[in-house]
């Protein structure tokens, strides 16, 4: 498409030449390296430690060990997802901010500067501007993701000495892919807001509100709505002892609403993809069951589809609004 690659090249060079980009990129890299190192240490400890069984926590994840000595972690806790938990959380926080910082002023800055009319007067399709700018941003976040992942994973592997089986490589590759889609979503959100809102300061504020909603508001809303619709039931035993029961609908509703947030959806998908085994109890005896890549992928498929659908929907909205805007 005429002009698209020129626009993409310029956008990419502009982005990587900005101080704000370098600052957030450096922050992301440091955070990822630190969390990968910590994750690596925790993984190594769990592999080398031994101890007697004392079940400590539920929710499908078991942590077993004696209460005083070193803890032996198994079940899903032995999975990559646990070791990389803080890396996943940090990526969802800083990665989202980086994507927003790149895209919040993509179009309204051109308009405010007075260069949009000039651009449009060239023999290029209007699509080329929106596609090119998005592609440039996407290249920048891909570069960030590649560097962060290679750095983080390199450190994790060197600390843990983990064997890089096909299974592990596949899971990590999917982790990388999902992280890229996550950043692409925030990039599209910033792009949409830069088209809809007239000034960069307003679109920055709106983008930050969306980001905060994604990491805090929507997950909390899920919890609150769940509590309202499925309140905790208090029952009394024959001896008069009160007991509290959480209704089953609560967890389902909370999961659905929270999952609407890109950040929660991202964490859910990645956790699911990196979970290599689960802890199950058969007649009171804990058993570790392996989870294949295919099973992990299938279990996260609905969230994954939602995730990709969300990206397409936001970008399509940005595209349609931009194409329909009249230039005056």
């Amino acid at each position: 498409m005429a002009g698209m690659l020129t626009m993409a090249k310029k956008e990419f060079l502009d982005i990587i030449g900005e101080k704000k980009f370098m600052l957030i990129f450096a922050t992301l890299l440091i955070v990822i390296l630190v969390s990968a190192y910590q994750g690596g240490l925790s993984y190594s400890e769990s592999q080398s430690a031994t101890g007697s069984f004392t079940f400590e926590s539920g929710q499908g994840r078991g942590r077993v060990g004696n209460t005083t000595g070193p803890v032996m972690v198994f079940g899903s806790a032995q999975s990559l997802s646990n070791s990389l938990e803080s890396m996943i959380t940090n990526f969802s926080l800083v990665g989202g901010v980086l994507a927003i910082a790149i895209s919040f002023d993509t179009i309204n800055n051109e308009r405010q500067r007075g260069s949009l009319k000039t651009l449009l007067s060239y023999p290029i399709y209007r699509d080329s501007i929106v596609y090119g700018k998005y592609l440039g941003g996407l290249l920048a976040v891909t570069m960030v993701s590649v560097v962060s992942f290679l750095g983080g994973m390199g450190l994790f592997i060197s600390v843990t000495g983990i064997e890089m089986t096909t299974d592990t490589v596949l899971r990590l590759a999917m982790f990388f892919g999902v992280s890229l889609v996550y950043m692409a979503i925030f990039l599209a959100i910033g792009l949409l807001l830069s088209i809809v809102l007239p000034s960069p300061s307003t679109s920055l504020l709106a983008s930050m509100i969306v980001w905060l909603s994604s990491i805090q508001l929507i997950p909390n809303l899920g919890y609150a709505i769940g509590q309202i619709l499925y309140p905790v039931r208090m029952t009394f035993s024959q001896t008069g002892e009160p007991s509290f029961t959480q209704q089953t609908g609560f967890t389902t509703l909370r999961t659905i609403i929270s999952g609407l947030s890109p950040s929660t959806a991202y964490e859910n998908i990645v956790n699911s993809l990196l979970t290599t085994s689960s802890l199950e109890f058969t007649s009171g005896t804990p058993t570790v069951t392996s989870i294949s890549v295919t099973t992990a992928l299938m279990s996260s498929l609905p969230s994954l589809l939602y995730f990709v659908g969300l990206l397409i929907a936001i970008f399509a909205a940005a595209y349609v609004v931009f194409m329909r805007q009249e230039i005056r």
Binding site: G17, G114, T118
Partner: peptide, 11 residues
């Protein structure tokens, strides 16, 4: 075209 108040890439 030279639009009114044309802007450029400052960097």
């Amino acid at each position: 075209l030279l639009p009114e108040n044309a802007g450029f890439y400052e960097n």
